[in-house]
């Protein structure tokens, strides 16, 4: 039944640090690699050398943020790279809409999965997900989504260090963290508490398990070359801000044209 479990013993999920992510797409590639070679239908590409499109379980969006002025001083815009995969929601609307029972949420660890042998490819679950975390594979005709690398995290054939999601294992910046968010003492829960982890689109009522850590406030940097910390500073200060002599005359003449 695609009813949701009332509670799950554990809430396995990801904590994604928007302060640290450098937008390198390494997790995208690792995710596609692992999930193409392992569980279920491979993640196909269409027209890979032309007008390419394909199935991905993890995508990086990048946003520009224009902060509000501080004391009437305009602030510079900032870039935030934004990895997005399934948030393994507690009230997952994608599960309850599924007519075939292919979509389900596991009672033991809260992972939301698709049983591809039962999926009829109606796409309704992708419509029900607010986050765009489900994509219908155009070659296989079945629904694909992040499995939280269920075939890695419990896999005794892998070295212990590799028993975590491919995206987490790969991230060179350490921006993705995996753990049990139901356990207040887990390192992910501590991160969430410390950094103020946030739910995406809380108004949709999905209660996401994955949490996002907001970018830290921008550093305040001292004005350049003030103070005595650099004895060469005076020599590097700009000279002759206003043109003089002939150049000044050219400048004035051009202005008048």
């Amino acid at each position: 039944m695609t009813a949701l479990p009332a509670t799950t013993a554990r809430k396995l999920g990801l904590v994604i640090d928007l302060d640290t992510c450098v937008g390198c797409h390494a997790c995208v590639t690792a995710c596609k690699g692992w999930n193409t070679q392992n569980y279920g239908a491979p993640l196909s590409d269409q027209d890979a050398y032309g007008d390419a499109s394909g199935t991905f379980l993890n995508r990086i969006h990048s946003f520009q943020v224009q902060p509000e002025p501080v004391n009437d001083v305009p602030q510079l815009a900032q870039t935030t790279h934004f990895p997005k995969s399934c948030l393994h929601c507690e009230d997952a609307p994608c599960v309850t809409v599924c007519p075939t029972g292919a979509s389900y949420k596991r009672a033991e660890d809260g992972i939301v999965l698709v049983n591809e042998d039962a999926c009829m490819g109606c796409g309704l679950c992708a419509w029900a997900c607010p986050y765009g975390a489900r994509e219908m594979d155009q070659a296989a005709g079945v629904m694909k989504k992040c499995t939280l690398c269920v075939d890695r995290i419990y896999n005794e054939n892998l070295e212990e260090i590799d028993r975590q999601p491919a995206c987490v294992r790969t991230c060179p910046a350490g921006a993705r963290h995996f753990g049990d968010l139901a356990d207040p003492d887990s390192h992910v829960s501590k991160l969430v508490a410390e950094r103020g982890g946030l739910d995406l689109m809380p108004e949709q009522g999905t209660k996401p398990v994955n949490q996002y850590l907001p970018p830290r406030p921008r550093d305040t940097i001292q004005p350049v070359m003030s103070g005595d910390e650099d004895i060469l500073a005076p020599f590097l200060a700009p000279v002759a801000e206003e043109p003089k002599g002939f150049l000044a005359w050219v400048d004035r003449a051009l202005e008048k044209l």
């Binding site: 928007l18 995208v28 969006h61 520009q64 943020v65 995406l200 689109m201 108004e203």
Partner: peptide, 15 residues
């Protein structure tokens, strides 16, 4: 609300 970022947010680059 979708990004939980503070300030005026706009898409800079698609995935």
């Amino acid at each position: 609300t979708a990004t939980q970022l503070k300030g005026r947010v706009s898409l800079w680059e698609k995935p």
